[in-house]
């Protein structure tokens, strides 16, 4: 699985990034509260969709901010790299993130 490979090798290459983000805990993107920032750890979606999302910037170490939820509560708008993209909860649930306590450190 691509996701596992990515998860296993980022720790080696980008180890120092972990320290920079300060206190963090693992979580799912769908569970983050509005206004919080998560750092992508891994994606676990069917191949094509995963590839598509990665091309849009959902890659390990990318910072994602939860901007707002649609009026019906789903989908949710995320900000990544200065652009906004909406994902349904089903999709966001497959993206594992480290939650940052302090959104504006980097």
């Amino acid at each position: 699985m691509v996701a596992i490979a990515l998860l296993s090798d980022f720790g080696v290459e980008d180890g120092e990034e972990l320290d920079l983000s300060g206190a963090w805990k693992l979580s799912l993107l769908s569970e983050l509260a509005i206004g919080t920032v998560g750092v992508v750890e891994s994606l676990d979606l069917p191949g094509e969709i995963q590839h598509h999302l990665m091309h849009m910037g959902f890659l390990p170490e990318a910072r994602v901010m939860v901007v707002r939820r649609a009026p019906a509560g789903d989908p949710t708008v995320y900000s990544i790299d200065g652009f906004e993209v909406a994902l349904r909860r089903d999709t966001a649930r497959a993206i594992r993130v480290r939650e940052c306590e302090t959104p504006d450190t980097r």
Binding site: L53, F83, A86, T91
Partner: peptide, 9 residues
């Protein structure tokens, strides 16, 4: 099965 919704705003 439900397809994902990925929409750039």
């Amino acid at each position: 099965s439900s397809a994902p919704f990925i929409l750039e705003l």
